[in-house]
Each structure stands twice: as C-alpha cells, then as structure tokens.
Simulated assay, not measured.
Amino acid sequence: MRIKHKLTSFWSLIKKTYFNWNRNDPWARSATIAYYALFSLPSLLIIVVSVAGYFFGQEAVQGRITTQISEFIGVESARAIEGMIANAALNDSSTLALIFGFAFLIFGATGVFFQLKAAMNNIWNVAAKRNTVKRIIINRIISLGMVFVLGLLMLISLVISAILAALNDYLASIAPVITTFMLDLLNFLISFIIITSLFAAIFKWLPDVKLRWKTTYLGAMLTTVLFLLAEYIIGFYFGQSNPGSVYGGASSVVLILLWVYYTCLIVFFGAEFTVQYALHKKDRVEPNEYAEPAIYRELELLERKKGQLIDEKRLLDTLQSYSEEDESDSSKSSK
C-alpha cells in the first residue's frame, strides 16, 4: 500500500508539473534561450575549454566536446561548433585588444545563463526588487560561476575517463568478458552523476530563492532521466529525418538551435517539478534578499496599466468632444 501511495503521489506531481509547465509557455522561453545560446556558445566553450584544458590540454578537451556533441546533433554540427571555438579564441594581439576581447568573451558566455535565470525566476514566481547596477553585476558573476561549473565538470569527466581507461586495461587482463559491461555501466553512472550535479547547480543558484539541496537534487535527478532519454530520442530523430537538411548551409546552426530548444524544454519541466515537489513537501522556500514574490510586481504593473488606461480614456473623451463640437458647428453652418 505504501508503494502504491507513493506512485499515486508521484503521478499527481507529474500531472501538476505538466499543467504548470505548459501554462508558463516554455515553448517561447526555450526559443528565446536557444537564440541567446547560439551567440553565447563560442564564448562559453572557449572558457570551458580553457578551464579544463589547463590540466589536460585544449586539444584533448576540444576533441572530447566535439565527440560528445557529434553524438547529439551529428558530425557536421560538431565541426561547426569546433570552428566557432577556433574563431572566438583570443589571439596574442595588443593588451587593449585582449582586455576588450576578454570582456566581450565574459559577456557573451554569461548571456544564456542570464536569460535562464529570468526564466527560473518566472517558474518560481519571484521577481527582482530593483535592477540596480550592483545586482546586474552580481547576476553576471553568478552566470560566470555557472560557466566555470561547466568547466569543472568537464575536467572531472576527463579525469574519470583517464581512470576508466586505465581500469579497462587492468580488467581486460583479468576478466575480459565483463570488461565492456562494467565500463558501460560505470560510464552511465558517472554521466548521470555529472549531469545531475549540473542541473542541481542550475536549480539551486540561478533562481532568486532559498532552496534546500535535497529538494534541488530530486528535481535534478528527474531532469537527468528525461535528458538522457531525450538524448537518445533526439539523436535518433536527427539521424533518421535530418531536419536541418532543408536549410542547406545553415543546417548546422538550425540543429544547434533545435538541440538547445529541446534541452530547455526538459530543464524547465525539471525546474517546475522541483517547485511542485517543494510545495508537496511543504518546504520553506522564500525569495532571497534581492527578490520578492512576483505578485507584488504584477500588482505594480496593473496599477501602471490602470493609470495608462485612465489617460487613454481621458484622451479619447477629449477627442470625442472635439468631434462633437465639429459636428455641431457644421450643422449650424449648413442651416
């Protein structure tokens, strides 16, 4: 009975999650973030490659990223991204050019997380109190931190891959039959942990709410399951139908946009599940010192809209009175 009750509760959470997820219009928000991601991707990858490449070499890290991306959206798109990294790299020019180049690199890399933060706040129904210069800088720093988290996770992934390669040689000499199965299982578990950690960091740090890690990780685990499932489905879909073929030379860009678009839909669903789970468990979730419940902002906007409507009505009444006076004058002159 306890298992049945938990399954019923979980199904109820999934239904609430879906209805609220759909109500928040994830389609438009995912399209917006996909657009920003296209311009942020070169800068973001440059920083990730630089962080992880400091220890393993940039060519090794770049090759790993290309291999991973090619599994999702094909070799051509992976090569296009590789070209983005090469073209966005800072060369050894003047000091002033390097400073400006680095500044634009940071601004570009944090753009997608900046927009993702706004979407997360909308899901949690919170809004920033004031967009001061200080808060904008803090948001950019948080977004930059997420970029470095990506670099750190890539570094961890490379370290583990090196360990697994050594373990593979050892197991092959002892039990060659189980080597492949063991390594596939280890790779899956490691990928699951790394991706879950990334989603947990996004759910924990991006929205302007105070949230427990336990709640965050549960939502991140569901998001990872959906992401890995979608990875297979999207990879199969791209491989069989090739949706970017009709766009000719722009097919690589279209596939990148589609990949980010579908990924954002999954991330938003996981974030909405985290919200519903927190409500179900009656966790204490409140805005941080920089935010407030969105209803206050909505009431403020309604008051402004009310004032605008009053002004518009006053203007219409004035124009109508002018029209009535003109009609009266014209009728008098005709008599």
Rank of each mutant, 00 (worst) to 15 (best):
D311R: 11
F102K: 01
M146Q: 13
W27E: 09
G249R: 12
R29Q: 10
S12H: 06
I99V: 12
Y262V: 11
A200W: 07
L222H: 01
Y261H: 14
H280V: 07
L13G: 04
T110R: 02
K16L: 06
G248W: 13
K210M: 14
L228R: 00
S173L: 15
V48N: 08
K281D: 14
D25K: 08
V285A: 06
A80C: 08
R135T: 07
Q240S: 15
D208I: 01
I141A: 14
A165S: 09
E292S: 09
G145R: 15
S330W: 07
V75Q: 15
D326K: 05
V225H: 00
A172G: 05
R135Y: 14
V159D: 07
D25P: 05
L45Y: 03
D311I: 15
V48R: 10
T180F: 09
V133G: 01
F56G: 03
P26Q: 14
P243Q: 08
W213H: 07
K117W: 02
T215Q: 13
I106E: 00
S331L: 10
S12L: 10
I256P: 01
K305S: 12
A103F: 10
I174K: 03
S245M: 08
I47H: 03
A201G: 01
R212V: 08
K214L: 15
C264W: 13
Q62H: 07
G74P: 03
I123S: 02
K134I: 12
I123P: 04
N187Y: 03
